[in-house]
Simulated assay, not measured.
Amino acid sequence: MIRVLLDTCVLFKPLLCDTLLCIAEEEVYQPLWSVDILEELERNLIRHNITEQAAQRRIGRMRQHFPDALVEDYQDLIPAMRNDPGDRHVLAAAVAGNAELVVTENLRHFPEEAANPYGLEIVSQDKFLLDQVDLVPRAVHEALTRQVSRYRREPRTLEDLVIALGTPGNGCPQFAKRCHADSC
């Protein structure tokens, strides 16, 4: 199973995070994150008016459902990373976690010359989700269907979920377009 490090920026958005993790529940890929990523996520959630308890609950559920996602022993690698200084911890965690991909919105923070020596591919959430539809369409459909079945508020239908994921706030316009065309 492919190992994929999820950057804070894609975990921050609740709908996108749910989508990524629902697909991971289908055992399509192994999600990875680090303590630094989870701490950054908590800080950002609180900064955006999520209570500390709610932020901790969300992160606690992530850790509970994906106990093997936490990458450890990456801190010594941080100084050797040659990407954006603010995201060196992300690249170091990907290397230590034997990830094949990093999913992020901040593509410019991970230039090829920084990622290539470690055999890492850096992709946007839109590209990652498009690849999953191409590789395992049935698993993606099952994941999205299960995702909307868990919601008590909008989006309550698969179509509404796909539309929401295609908005600029979630950053998956090509994935949404493909799902509409293919009836994800």
Rank of each mutant, 00 (worst) to 15 (best):
L38I: 05
M62C: 09
D182F: 05
L120E: 05
R57V: 01
P67F: 14
R88S: 05
V140Q: 00
K13V: 12
V35T: 14
T104H: 11
A24S: 04
V162L: 03
D160C: 02
R178M: 12
A80E: 10
A96H: 04
H141A: 06
Q56F: 06
L70C: 12
A139K: 15
L101I: 05
P117A: 05
L70Y: 03
L91T: 12
R82Y: 00
V162C: 04
L11R: 04
D126L: 10
A99I: 10
L21G: 00
C22T: 06
D131M: 11
P155N: 03
R178I: 08
V123A: 03
A114I: 08
M81P: 08
M1W: 09
T104W: 11
R61D: 10
H109M: 06
Q75W: 06
L144H: 07
V103A: 02
L41P: 13
L144A: 10
E42K: 15
H65W: 14
R88A: 06
E25Y: 02
N44I: 00
V162F: 09
H141Q: 11
L130F: 02
L5R: 00
A54V: 07
A99L: 08
R88H: 09
D182V: 00
P14E: 12
E42H: 13
L41W: 12
L70A: 11
P137L: 00
L161H: 02
F128E: 09
F175Y: 01
Q147M: 11
G171D: 01
C17Y: 04
C17L: 09
L77I: 06
M62E: 10
R47L: 14
R47E: 11
R156E: 10
D160M: 09
Q56M: 11
D134F: 05
L70E: 15
G60L: 04
G86T: 08
G169N: 06
